[in-house]
């Protein structure tokens, strides 16, 4: 389990061997480890972009990592707006990034 992870640490010691957990992010198959949050597993796999702003489409990733800012919200299976930083990955979990939504009632927009 090397990719993106801090295996050896001078004070905290070596990372324990953990069970692999298979999950998907926008249909890409990824591997994380038992007990990891969605946010940690995605970052370790090099995925920094978790969603885009529903209206402007600007990209977002992890910001506070402790459940306050809601920036890391993703869709998990049928559940919408799940905080990736507080949710532990499960075998077979289907994670989807948040997408831009239509704004049909916004003034001055043609679409």
């Amino acid at each position: 389990m090397s990719k993106g992870r801090i295996i050896d640490h001078p004070i905290l010691g070596r990372l324990d061997e953990r069970e692999e957990v298979h999950f998907t992010f926008d249909e890409n198959k990824l591997i994380g480890y038992e007990g990891e949050t969605i946010a940690a597993a995605l970052l370790a796999n090099g995925e920094r972009v978790l969603r885009c702003h529903e209206e402007t489409g600007k990209l977002r990733g992890i910001y506070c990592n402790i459940g306050h800012c809601m920036e890391c919200r993703v869709n998990v299976g049928n559940q919408k707006s799940v905080r990736a930083c507080l949710t532990v990955i499960q075998e077979g979990m289907e994670v989807k990034s948040g997408r831009k939504l239509p704004t049909p009632f916004k003034k001055g927009e043609t679409q």
């Binding site: 910001y63 506070c64 306050h68 800012c69 809601m70 920036e71 919200r73 707006s81």
Partner: peptide, 8 residues
């Protein structure tokens, strides 16, 4: 007034 309730 957004999702985080102003926490940020």
């Amino acid at each position: 007034m957004g999702q985080c309730g102003g926490r940020t």
